[in-house]
Design a protein around this nucleic acid. Structure first.
Length: 140
DNA sequence: GCCAACGTTGGC
DNA sequence: GCCAACGTTGGC
């Protein structure tokens, strides 16, 4: 089981949109090789944080990978693929970017160090720390 | 709204 | 294959 972080501009695709979709939706529109390569590594059941970028800069919820890598239906360009994700839980206390930056245990997080990467890996220890900060129940 | 950082494109 | 120019992202 691996952990990830998905960034989205809430104006374009918000956590509320994701929740409203229910059973799963393509994480499409990714046009960056590093982000796509990360999605290629995802397995069914992997979990990811849902992060609101731009004005909010907050981790607001948790999603689960419910379909592995497949062509992105929003383009005919075969280079671009995506996974499907579904909302599985909301952060009781959403965790801000500022919190992550100020926590020395999270100083190596990709989110803290590479603001441009929109789909990124999260280490298990980082996952647990953020779940604690957010008051999100984490089994294990 | 500004601008730094990064990725991509295309001329050579 | 290098690198300058350009476009985009996203923090501030």
């Amino acid at each position: 089981m691996a952990y990830w972080l998905f960034k989205s501009e809430p104006n374009v695709w918000s956590w509320d949109d994701q929740v409203a979709k229910g059973g799963g939706e393509e994480w499409d529109g990714i046009r960056n090789y590093q982000a796509r390569n990360n999605m290629r590594l995802m397995k069914l059941g992997d979990l990811g944080f849902f992060y609101h970028s731009m004005k909010e800069r907050t981790i607001v919820g948790v999603v689960e990978v419910c379909a592995e890598i497949h062509p992105d239906s929003t383009t005919d360009d075969p280079r671009w693929e995506c996974v499907d994700v579904k909302a599985v839980g909301e952060m009781p206390n959403p965790v801000t970017l500022a919190q992550c930056k100020s926590d020395s245990r999270l100083k190596d997080m990709v989110l803290v160090n590479n603001s441009r990467l929109s789909v990124q890996p999260v280490r298990e220890k980082e996952w647990k720390i953020i779940c604690e900060l957010g008051g999100y129940p984490h089994s294990g």
